[in-house]
């Protein structure tokens, strides 16, 4: 008998064949998508995969930790904390002590010429380069290749850097001698 052109087996029909036996599991509905995606990812040829011990030890050995939410105080419905209205941001020293973030630098003091101004050896200075140096302010200046901290004197065309310790000389500038004001000291940090 001649084989009919129709009927018989259709290519691709029937149950999908898997590489390995499969089982049916119930999963939380919210997790379905991610689980399907993960299985698909694992089917797609992976690049070099870590050995399994890298990411999970055998589940049997590992006790599953229970996460219990901890409350620091009991919550009673209907009676909000009377302090709730007063919750405020904690003090931030960056905000309080620094006016121009980009122009502010910290420097460490070495020496004793400014002790009468309350600047001691080992203190840290907050220096703001954005401020204009004015007469009588404490400044950092570059003198002879060194950064130095002194009190700025500028009166009647005379510019000097004053020491705040009688044992140290002031720095006066003669013609041709170079001096560059580096920044203005705004705060002193000291350990006590």
């Amino acid at each position: 008998m001649k084989k009919p052109k129709w009927g018989g087996q259709r290519v691709g029909a029937g149950r999908k064949c898997a590489a390995e036996p499969t089982v049916t599991v119930r999963v939380p509905a919210s997790r379905k998508e991610s689980i399907v995606k993960l299985v698909q990812q694992m089917k797609a040829a992976p690049t070099t995969r870590c050995p399994s011990w890298l990411t999970f030890q055998s589940l049997a050995e590992q006790p599953v930790p229970q996460m219990i939410p901890m409350m620091s105080h009991s919550v009673r419905a209907g009676f909000p904390s009377p302090a709730d209205d007063y919750i405020e941001k904690r003090i931030d020293l960056n905000e309080e002590l620094i006016q121009h973030r980009e122009a502010t630098f910290f420097l460490r003091v070495r020496g004793h010429s400014m002790i009468d101004a309350g600047i001691d050896d080992g203190d840290e200075l907050i220096v703001d380069r954005a401020l204009t140096p004015e007469h009588h302010r404490i400044v950092v200046a570059a003198v002879d290749g060194e950064l130095t901290v002194k009190r700025f004197y500028q009166r009647n065309g005379v510019v000097k850097l004053l020491a705040e310790n009688p044992q140290f000389p002031d720095i006066e500038f003669k013609n041709g001698q170079e001096m560059m004001i580096w920044g203005v000291v705004t705060k002193v940090i000291k350990s006590v």
Partner: peptide, 14 residues
């Protein structure tokens, strides 16, 4: 590292 390490701040003489 003058600006990123507290222990390495630039030194200012006085």
């Amino acid at each position: 590292c003058y600006t990123t390490e507290w222990s390495e701040l630039a030194v200012v003489h006085c």
